[in-house]
């Protein structure tokens, strides 16, 4: 696993926006997700974006590192033909009575996803504020690389302006090398596994 900083990013600073390139299948993705969530200590606010996954699934993966009573948890959950909104509630039981704010967005509407995320970034009261977007691979099933690139330009800027830190998952096995080369300049750092899954 390597952590590459983009040119111009101070190595002593926590990168605001990190591209997390891991195989979608296997433990690496979730291990690195947990590390990225807690880079600056226990997060005060976590904003998740789920597309093919659900808020419940993400919370289950975070159960060892996030205390849902002390951390404000919010999700922008994108429901579409491949997964119903009802499934997004999976795993919410047993979270010690945590209140989780879930905004459902029908279809992959980047304008709406962006508006919801930026509103939540502006309204976050407890820091550190951490964003987890799961995943760019899912969004690329519905949007062109060019559109996603433009969308991420705005989103990464808003994350930095809000003094938040964000990571964006992408399947290491799901795209040609050129896609990674095109997306990488959007981020302050890229985390890659040493090898792709076979």
């Amino acid at each position: 696993m390597s952590d590459e900083l983009s040119p111009g990013v101070d190595a002593t600073e926590t990168p605001s926006n990190v591209l997390c390139v891991c195989p979608a299948i296997g433990n690496a993705k979730n291990e690195h997700c947990r590390d990225l969530l807690t880079r600056e200590g226990p997060p005060g606010t976590v904003l998740g974006v789920t597309v093919a996954s659900s808020p419940g699934e993400r919370m289950s993966e975070w159960s060892n590192v996030i205390d849902p009573v002390r951390t404000t948890l919010s999700f922008v959950d994108v429901s579409h033909g491949g997964r119903s909104a009802a499934m997004s509630a999976d795993g919410f039981g047993g979270q010690n009575g945590a209140i989780v704010n879930v905004v459902e967005v029908e279809d992959v509407d980047l304008q709406r996803i962006g508006a919801e995320l930026t509103t939540q970034l502006e309204n976050a009261e407890k820091g550190p504020v951490v964003v987890c977007l799961d995943s760019l691979t899912d969004l690329l099933q519905f949007e062109t690389e060019r559109t996603l690139h433009r969308f991420l330009n705005v989103l990464t800027a808003r994350v930095e302006q809000a003094d938040a830190i964000a990571h964006y998952h992408i399947d290491a096995d799901g795209h040609p090398d050129r896609t990674f080369d095109t997306l990488t300049p959007l981020f302050d750092a890229t985390i890659r596994p040493n090898c792709r899954s076979e």
Binding site: G114, R150, V154, A157, P185, L186
Partner: peptide, 29 residues
């Protein structure tokens, strides 16, 4: 080059800071 891209990204970040969210996402999308 990475330097060209980094410079352009900084310029983009400066401009988007002057746009409200609606304008920024509308232009991008």
């Amino acid at each position: 080059t990475d330097a060209e891209l980094d410079s352009l990204k900084r310029e983009l970040d400066e401009i988007v800071a002057e746009l409200d969210d609606e304008d920024a996402f509308e232009v991008a999308l």
